[in-house]
């Protein structure tokens, strides 16, 4: 059994969740303190509702990633090159 670690920040769910939650906060604040422009939206505080919904979805993604984290093996087989369509070979990383 190879050594493993959690994907953490690279877990796509954390990325999605983080971005949506930030947008949720911005839009909620706009809805509470900004110009609601109800003449455009037809009387709905669109920013507030969209902001709250984004906040819920974003936090949901983050919670999901916390509850069921993804485990990545420490050593991964490199992707094999396609012989008929050579791509530049990957240089070994300089461990900085």
């Amino acid at each position: 059994m190879a050594e493993t670690h959690k994907a953490g920040a690279f877990d796509i769910r954390n990325v999605i969740g983080g971005l949506l939650a930030i947008y949720g906060v911005i839009l909620t604040l706009m809805g509470l303190f900004g110009d609601t422009e109800t003449e455009k939206t037809g009387g709905v505080n669109a920013n507030l509702w969209a902001g709250l919904a984004l906040l819920v979805v974003g936090l949901g993604f983050i919670a999901w990633a916390r509850i069921r984290p993804i485990v990545v093996p420490e050593h991964v087989e490199p992707v094999s090159d396609d012989p008929t369509r050579p791509a530049p070979r990957k240089k070994p990383r300089s461990g900085h």
């Binding site: 670690h5 994907a7 953490g8 920040a9 690279f10 877990d11 796509i12 769910r13 990325v15 993804i70 485990v71 990545v72 093996p73 991964v76 990383r93 461990g95």
Partner: peptide, 22 residues
């Protein structure tokens, strides 16, 4: 995230793998 993934030792492999096990 692009820059972070470049610096991190585990590179974007984490992303691909997390994609696979999702």
């Amino acid at each position: 995230i692009g820059l972070l993934a470049r610096r991190s030792v585990s590179d974007s492999v984490d992303f691909f793998l997390s994609g696979r096990s999702l």
